Amino acid sequence: MISPAPPYRTQLGPLLVRHRLARGWSQRRAAAELCAAAGVATLSRHEVSRWERQRRVPGGFWLGWLAVVLDVPPMVLAEAAARTRRTGPSAVGGSGRRGAPAARPAGRAGGGRARPRPGGTTRGGGARAAANR
């Protein structure tokens, strides 16, 4: 059996997951506990998920409250956050979306907006566009 990585080598995402699950909390519960402790109602479970998947790294404000809520020494979280920032999001999370291409396919120009057709109409629009014609 492989032992878990020592806390001083762990990146932030796995560290947060381990401590959250040790308390039996969902991501929603962790977000609620953080909001209650910080007195801020703007943190969602989606942001907790981003931190755990290492798509984002929390700043000093949230690292401090994570230390309080998860009962982890602040220095451990700060070092894990610094390690995660150095290695970047691809070290754990990959491309971020399942099945998503790494880059935009070649041959498609522009921002994906419909171009005007002669007569001032655009392509598509479904039933709403048909009803307005």
Rank of each mutant, 00 (worst) to 15 (best):
G64E: 07
L77H: 05
P58E: 05
V92H: 12
R123Y: 12
R104P: 05
G112Y: 12
L21F: 03
G111W: 10
V68H: 11
H46R: 14
L21P: 00
A91V: 06
R83A: 15
A5Q: 06
A30P: 08
A106Y: 00
R29C: 01
A91L: 05
G60Y: 03
A114T: 13
S49P: 04
A106V: 06
R133A: 05
R20F: 03
R85M: 12
R53A: 10
G39S: 11
G99C: 14
P7V: 10
R50N: 02
R83T: 02
R55F: 02
E33H: 12
R18H: 10
E52V: 10
G120R: 14
E33I: 03
A31L: 11
C35Y: 03
P7I: 06
G110Q: 03
P73M: 01
P74D: 00
A36I: 03
S3Q: 13
I2P: 14
R53P: 00
V68K: 15
A127C: 07
W51A: 00
L66G: 03
A114M: 12
A38V: 07
Q54K: 04
P58Q: 05
E52R: 06
A102V: 11
A37C: 15
G24E: 00
N132A: 14
A78W: 01
D71A: 15
S3G: 10
V69A: 09
R18E: 12
A114P: 07
A114N: 05
W25Q: 08
A5T: 12
R28G: 03
M75L: 11
N132G: 07
R28H: 06
L63K: 13
R20N: 07
R83G: 09
W25K: 10
L21C: 07
L16A: 01
L21S: 12
T10C: 12
R113M: 12
R98S: 14
L16N: 04
T122C: 12
R115E: 13
P7M: 01
P101Y: 01
